[in-house]
């Protein structure tokens, strides 16, 4: 039982890294990764929203959509629910936990329709996870997202101190760097299955 959960968690962090292996959530990955602090804040905010989104969408799917045979509506319903949820959380944080809002607030509107958040909720359903497994899976994916952001922020700080050819300045060199970071994560393939063997 625990073994299985750990496998799901580590799989989300390393092997099935959403940003670097499945290319979901590339927009914040390229947009907010210029500085370490911002990248870390964004990563934490995404993890937070992923957990909440999974906790909200899983019951809706299993209790409402599935019994009525409306599984095909999951994408559209999940977008609706996640967008509402993020807005709701933003208002609540602003009111009750201003300190946390200061830290995460600016990123929350960006996450409203982030494809990584939608992707993790949909994939949890597709993979046939239970509720607990879904939560652990989205935690792992969130940590993986944070890890990718933080690693890439480090890479970008190095890039900013170099002077590439004019044609490569800005986004091109960033994308090339992203591909190299992504390639490095291929080294984790096959590790997790044998982690606890």
């Amino acid at each position: 039982m625990y073994k299985e959960l750990i496998l799901i968690l580590m799989g989300g962090v390393l092997v099935n890294n959403y940003v670097l292996q499945q290319f979901l959530g590339i927009c914040p990955f390229l947009g907010v990764s210029k500085k370490f602090d911002q990248a870390s804040g964004m990563g934490i905010a995404v993890t937070f929203v992923m957990l909440l989104a999974t906790a909200a969408t899983y019951p809706i799917y299993t209790l409402v959509l599935e019994p009525m045979g409306l599984g095909y509506l999951q994408t559209i319903v999940f977008i609706l629910v996640i967008a509402t949820l993020v807005q709701f959380v933003e208002i609540m944080l602003k009111r009750f936990i201003p300190a946390l809002f200061q830290a995460l607030g600016v990123y929350l509107p960006l996450i409203t329709t982030n494809c990584a958040v939608l992707g993790v909720t949909l994939n949890n359903i597709t993979d046939g996870y239970s509720f607990l497994q879904s939560i652990i899976s989205s935690l792992g994916v969130g940590i993986g997202f944070w890890l990718a952001m933080v690693l890439f922020a480090g890479v970008r700080s190095k890039i900013s101190a170099t002077a590439p050819t004019k044609a490569f300045q800005g986004l091109p060199v960033t994308l090339i760097a992203a591909s190299i970071v992504a390639m490095s994560f291929y080294g984790f393939a096959g590790i997790v299955e044998n982690l606890l063997a």
């Binding site: 809706i60 409306l70 609706l80 208002i91 602003k94 009750f96």
Partner: peptide
Amino acid sequence: LICLGIAAICAIILTITSHFFSV
């Protein structure tokens, strides 16, 4: 109808929260 129902519930929740909890 189900989609509309979920959307309506979401809208009501957001309206209530923004009305009572907004800063």
